[in-house]
Each structure stands twice: as structure tokens, then as C-alpha cells.
């Protein structure tokens, strides 16, 4: 009995020693380079990656550092940036990635697969298509840019995660960064990307493809401002697809004296503006063979055939 207890004790001590020797692979926080955002850029035929890192010397979470690298591919640029740092890269808290301004569908796929492989264990990464900033500019403004993008994402309730950009087989829709608000880029395999910078079209496109649930814009002529929550309903009819945009808590105001500040008038003008924007979006996307709003899907579900040639109309309703 005593012999057995002695053996059990020895085994226990051995097990604990093995545990301690084989494990202990944890890494102190201070040795990690915590990446908050990655800004990809393309300049002179080279790929650049600017990493926004958490400053580990500071207790303030909004204190950042910047590292950058370049290479023939985005992966090389990212590796180059990582090599310039002493610590171990940690992408677990990366929540923003921007892509070069001229990014098309094929490049998007490359970036997505690079992020899937590299950025582990990563949370939902929000993707933006960047404006045409240079690497130097990005290095200087990365911290502010990150904060501004976060603010815009929060303000317009944008959600464009890495997992959702490739949810359609040959097309994607992504928000684009611009100084005021955001734009939208429609990427289609084998076609040049479409980019909408005008707020009404960009925000309408984001709402219709499910990336946002809020409209907050001023008409391009500066006449009316609008703020509203938005939900979308698709009705597939035999001869057309009806997209019902339901606006909640809409707040409209006239910004010029030409337009009376009457609710009915403003609503009528808003509806007309949105319908125009929708028609333009449909025409443009059809021209490159894209269907970012999945109108074909609803036709196929409810009418049995995709009906890609059927017209689509937007109906604006106020809740």
C-alpha cells in the first residue's frame, strides 16, 4: 500500500514537472505587438502595408505606434512590416483593414485569403477601400484615420466584416473611405470596380445590401438634410422586383429657402431622390453584370427564376 502511494506521489510530481516543462508557452503582453489596424496601399507598382500598433508603453488605449513595410505582394509587405518590429505579432485585436483605392474583385480575394491566414485569432475585421493616400501620408495619419474610421463606422452603423465580403460568388460591395462620410465600391469579377462617392447613392447601396441601417446625408445640391433608420423588404413580382425601403424616425429639414420646410414636400423630394439613386445604381451594376442587392435571389425564391432582366423599383415608406 505504502509502496503504491509512493509510486502515485512520484507519478504526480513527474506529471506536474512535465506540465510545467512542456507548457508555459504563454507570452507576456509586453512582448506582443498588438495590431489594431492594417492599411494596405499600392505605390509605384509596390505593395505597402502600414500597421497601426498599440503602444505598450502607455496605459492609454488610444496611444498608437506605426510600422510599415513593402514588397511585391501584400503578404510580403505585411511580413516586411512585421520584421521591422521586435515583438511577436498579435492580430487578435485587429478590427480594421483598408485596401488600396484601385482594389478590384481578384485583388480583394487575395487580400481576404491573406487576412484569413495571417490575422489569427482575429475578431470581425471591418474592411474599407481607402482613398488614394500615399504610404507616407498613411504613416503620419494612421492613428487619426483609425479613430475617424471607427467613428464613421459607429455613426453610420456600418458592418462590412471580412466574412461577408466574399459571401457572393463573384461580386462584393465594400465601403470606401472619404473625408466626409463614406462611399461604396461595387466589385465584380472581370469588370472594373464601380465607386460611388455621392452620399445618397452610397448610403442607399449600403442599406440595400445590408451593410448599414442608417441614412444620414445632405442632398448633393445641399438642399435637404435627412436622418433616418432604414429597413428593406424585397417583393418579387412577375413583372418586376419591388424594393420597399421603410424609413423610421425620419428627420428631414430644408437647408435652402427655395424648398418649404413642410414634411410632405420634403418626403416627396426625398423619395424622388432615392428612387433616382436606386435607378442609377441598378443601371450601373447591371451594366457590369453585378447584382449586389440580390434581386435575382428573391425572384428565384418567390417566382422560381432569377429574372435578371426584370425591372426593379424602389418604394419609400415612412414608419
Amino acid at each position: 500500500m505504502a509502496d503504491r502511494i509512493c509510486r502515485a506521489k512520484k507519478s504526480l510530481i513527474l506529471a506536474v514537472a512535465v506540465l510545467l516543462l512542456t507548457g508555459c508557452a504563454g507570452r507576456p503582453l509586453i512582448e506582443r505587438e498588438i495590431v489594431r489596424a492594417i492599411f494596405f496601399a499600392r505605390e509605384d507598382g509596390k505593395e505597402h502595408a502600414v500597421l497601426l500598433l498599440q503602444n505598450q508603453e502607455s496605459e492609454d488605449s488610444s496611444d498608437y505606434e506605426v510600422a510599415s513595410g513593402e514588397g511585391d505582394s501584400a503578404a510580403q509587405a505585411l511580413a516586411d512590416a512585421a520584421e521591422s518590429l521586435d515583438g511577436v505579432m498579435f492580430y487578435g485585436l485587429t478590427d480594421l483593414v483598408t485596401l488600396p483605392a484601385d482594389c478590384d474583385w481578384e485583388q480583394l480575394q487575395e487580400f481576404a485569403s491573406l487576412l484569413y491566414e495571417t490575422a489569427q485569432p482575429s475578431p470581425e475585421i471591418t474592411l474599407f477601400v481607402m482613398d488614394s493616400r500615399t504610404r507616407d501620408n498613411l504613416e503620419q495619419t494612421a492613428g487619426d484615420l483609425y479613430d475617424e474610421m471607427q467613428a464613421v463606422e459607429k455613426k453610420y452603423r456600418i458592418s462590412c466584416g471580412l466574412e461577408s465580403v466574399l459571401s457572393q460568388a463573384n461580386q462584393a460591395i465594400l465601403p470606401c473611405w472619404q473625408e466626409t462620410g463614406y462611399g461604396i465600391a461595387v466589385l465584380r469579377a472581370g469588370a472594373p470596380p464601380l465607386r460611388y462617392v455621392e452620399p445618397v447613392r452610397a448610403q442607399l447601396a449600403a442599406v440595400l445590401c445590408g451593410q448599414s441601417r442608417k441614412l444620414e446625408f445632405v442632398f448633393s445640391d445641399g438642399s435637404i438634410s435627412c436622418t433616418a433608420g432604414a429597413t428593406v423588404l424585397f417583393h418579387a413580382l412577375r413583372d418586376r422586383t419591388q424594393v420597399i425601403l421603410r424609413l423610421q424616425d425620419a428627420s428631414l429639414s430644408s437647408l435652402t429657402q427655395d424648398i418649404p420646410n413642410e414634411e410632405q414636400t420634403l418626403r416627396r423630394l426625398l423619395s424622388a431622390e432615392l428612387e433616382d439613386a436606386f435607378a442609377q445604381l441598378c443601371a450601373d451594376t447591371r451594366a457590369i453584370g453585378a447584382d449586389p442587392f440580390r434581386l435575382g435571389f428573391w425572384q428565384a425564391c418567390l417566382q422560381g427564376a432569377p429574372g435578371n432582366d426584370l425591372p426593379a423599383e424602389l418604394v419609400v415608406e415612412y414608419a
Partner: peptide, 27 residues
């Protein structure tokens, strides 16, 4: 969740789980 990207997703269930944030923890 993934749509057309489902077959390409590595450890898809884990990737879906990491997007969930119901608690005080981020994920």
C-alpha cells in the same frame, strides 16, 4: 453566415464564433 465563401473558410465554425459578441468579453 458565409454564403459562397463557406467552402473556402478555414475552421468556419470557429470563424463564425469569433464574430459573436454577446458578453462583456469582446468575443
Amino acid at each position: 453566415f458565409f454564403g459562397a465563401a463557406m467552402p473556402d473558410a478555414r475552421n468556419p465554425l470557429h470563424q463564425a464564433a469569433r464574430c459573436g459578441a454577446l458578453s462583456v468579453f469582446d468575443r
